[in-house]
């Protein structure tokens, strides 16, 4: 589904990603872990198409198409979803209205008929129930006055409504208490489908107690230095990021 080859990315003239290779198939959950400043969030933002980040080399193929050529909204319409690390507030626009606009853009793109307000509200309520989301959230302005936990829950809720093919979660677990973390994790688990892939970007192993990844990748200084199964996360938790850094120290110069 997603094929990243030798991806190099710069921001403000500084290279952040220094040749990433990653292959994600439908049905898989990949955890990308790394210390602060390793380039994790940059990877997420580049896949979503944030204009601040500039690709200087490499390829990203999504379902056989050159993802890097596509506008951010076209990526979204083709099923790429990013849960933001810092969700943005849009005062005065209700969550329900915002989501309906997004949902209908995606439907239009697929050649499907748009849903009217009533039909959409029905769908929204059903998803909210499924996700254990309080209905009052639907009428509140997008992220305005939300607590940190509510914002993150809202991101996962949006994901549940928009049903992406490729979900990228950018540190959705940071700053959450254990209850909010469980809600977020449960949401992600409920959305696991054979046709859907998830890239879970995280600093901590903690969320992986609730979401079992198929693969774990360790990103250090703009490069994936180790890849493995779910046990790699546990090893990392035990030994810390310095452990991979040290291991990497020798081949890095080669």
């Amino acid at each position: 589904m997603l094929e990243i080859k030798n991806l190099r990315v710069a921001v403000g003239g500084k290279e952040i990603l220094k040749g990433i290779n990653l292959s994600v198939n439908a049905g898989e959950v990949h955890a990308v872990m790394g210390p602060n400043g390793s380039g994790k969030s940059t990877l997420a933002q580049v896949l979503a198409g944030h204009p601040t980040f500039q690709v200087i080399e490499g390829e990203v193929t999504y379902e056989g198409r050159n993802l890097l050529e596509m506008m951010p909204e076209d990526r979204a319409k083709e099923g790429v979803f990013m849960a933001f690390q810092y969700p943005v507030e849009i005062p005065g626009v209700s969550n329900a209205y915002f989501l309906r606009s997004a949902y209908n853009e995606i439907r239009k793109h697929r050649g499907e008929e748009e849903l009217d307000a009533m039909e959409f509200l029905k769908l929204l309520r059903q998803r909210a129930k499924l996700m254990n989301i309080d209905e009052s959230l639907l009428n509140r302005p997008v992220n305005e006055g939300f607590s940190g936990g509510e914002k993150k829950k809202n991101e996962v809720f949006q994901m549940a409504v928009l049903e992406p093919k490729l979900a990228i979660l950018d540190e959705t677990d940071s700053g959450l208490d254990i209850d909010a973390l469980k809600v977020v994790a449960e949401g992600v688990n409920q959305l696991r489908r054979p046709e859907r892939a998830t890239v879970l970007i995280t600093h901590y192993q903690r969320i992986l107690n609730y979401i079992t990844p198929d693969y774990v990748h360790v990103l250090v200084d703009g490069k994936i230095v180790r890849s493995g199964g779910k046990e790699l996360a546990l090893e990392l938790e035990e030994k810390g990021y310095d452990w991979v850094r040290e291991k990497e120290a020798v081949p890095a110069g080669a």
Binding site: G49, H50, M71, R75, A76, V88, F98, E105, H109, L162
Partner: peptide, 9 residues
């Protein structure tokens, strides 16, 4: 960008 990421131009 947030809106665009959700599919709006």
């Amino acid at each position: 960008f947030y809106c665009k990421q959700r599919g709006l131009n």
